[in-house]
C-alpha cells in the first residue's frame, strides 16, 4: 500500500517543478482555441511546460488567491486591480482585447438590432420580457453583463422569469441560449469558435461599452511562496513582448482575428 502510494506520487509530476507554469485562466481564451495556437510557440521559446486551468474569471481569481496557480489571464479589470492591490499579484498588465456582442434568435423578437447603444438594446429585451440567458457565475463576462444592466433593468428581481441565470461557462450558456431561443452576452472569441449556434446570430455590437480587456498577472511569491515566479514572469514577459503579441494577433478563425494585442 505504501509503495503504491509512493509510486502514485512519483508518477505524477508536482506543480512546483521549475519549468511548469500553471495559468488560472478565463474560459474564453481556451474555448476559442487561443492557447492551442500560442502555447506551443511559447513553450518552444521559453522551455516551459505551460498548463492552463480554464475556469470563470471569478473562480480563477479565487484559485490564484489560494495559491493554486502561478499566474492569471482574466478579463475583469477592476477585480484584477483589486487583486494586485490586496498583495496577491505582483503587477497587472493589459494583454489584449476583443469585444462583447449580444447574440439572440435571428428573428430578433425584442428588436435590438438597430439600438443606438448597449443600454437601449438591453432595455428593449427587458421591455419585451424576451428570454435572456445570463452566465450567473461571477465570471468576467457576467460582471460585464451586470454592469451593463445597471440602471437599465432590475435583473435580480426578474431572475427566474425572462432573465435566466445558467450558473455555467460561456459555452454552456450559449448552448442554453441556442436551445431556448434566448439572448445572451458573449465575448466575440468564444462566439466565433462556437459551433452549436443553432438559430442564434449577432444582433448587437460596436458600442465602446462592450470593450473587453484581458489582463495578465503573475501571482505574488510573497503571498504564495510555492509559486514558480520565474516561470510565470518569463511567460508574462513573453506574452507582452513583440513575439507574444504577434502570436496572439496571428490567431484567426474562419479568417477573423479573435484577439487584438494591446500590451504597452
Amino acid at each position: 500500500m505504501k509503495r503504491l502510494l509512493l509510486a502514485l506520487f512519483l508518477a505524477t509530476p508536482a506543480m512546483a517543478q521549475d519549468n511548469v507554469v500553471l495559468v488560472q485562466s478565463t474560459t474564453s481564451t481556451q474555448n476559442s482555441g487561443l492557447y492551442d495556437a500560442i502555447l506551443p510557440i511559447a513553450e518552444e521559446a521559453l522551455g516551459l511546460d505551460i498548463r492552463v486551468v480554464a475556469v470563470g474569471t471569478g473562480q480563477a481569481l479565487q484559485n490564484a488567491e489560494r495559491c493554486d496557480g502561478d499566474m492569471l489571464i482574466v478579463h475583469a479589470r477592476d477585480a484584477e486591480i483589486a487583486f494586485v492591490a490586496a498583495g496577491f499579484g505582483t503587477e497587472r498588465q493589459d494583454l489584449m482585447y476583443n469585444d462583447f456582442v449580444i447574440v439572440g434568435p435571428a428573428t430578433d423578437p425584442a428588436g435590438i438590432a438597430d439600438a443606438p447603444d448597449a443600454a437601449t438594446a438591453l432595455g428593449a429585451i427587458a421591455a419585451a420580457a424576451a428570454p435572456f440567458a445570463s452566465r450567473g457565475d461571477d465570471s468576467g463576462t457576467h460582471r460585464k453583463e451586470l454592469s451593463l444592466w445597471d440602471g437599465v433593468a432590475d435583473v435580480a428581481a426578474a431572475s427566474g422569469t425572462w432573465y435566466r441565470e445558467t450558473g455555467s461557462g460561456m459555452g454552456a450558456t450559449l448552448n442554453v441560449a441556442a436551445g431556448m431561443g434566448a439572448y445572451t452576452l458573449t465575448d466575440r472569441a468564444t462566439w466565433l469558435a462556437f459551433e452549436n449556434r443553432g438559430d442564434l446570430a449577432i444582433l448587437f455590437q460596436g458600442d465602446p461599452e462592450l470593450f473587453n480587456q484581458y489582463g495578465v498577472i503573475p501571482v505574488d511569491p510573497e503571498h504564495c511562496p510555492n509559486v514558480n515566479i520565474n516561470g510565470a514572469q518569463a511567460f508574462t514577459d513573453w506574452l507582452v513582448s513583440e513575439a507574444g503579441q504577434q502570436a496572439i494577433a496571428d490567431y484567426t478563425l474562419g479568417g477573423e482575428q479573435l484577439f487584438f494585442p494591446n500590451a504597452n
Partner: peptide, 16 residues
C-alpha cells in the same frame, strides 16, 4: 490546494 492541509505535496492539478 496550496493553502490546504495537504498542499505541500503539490498534487493539485495532477493525475494523482
Amino acid at each position: 490546494s496550496a493553502t490546504g492541509p495537504f498542499g505541500v505535496f503539490g498534487l493539485l492539478y495532477t493525475p494523482g
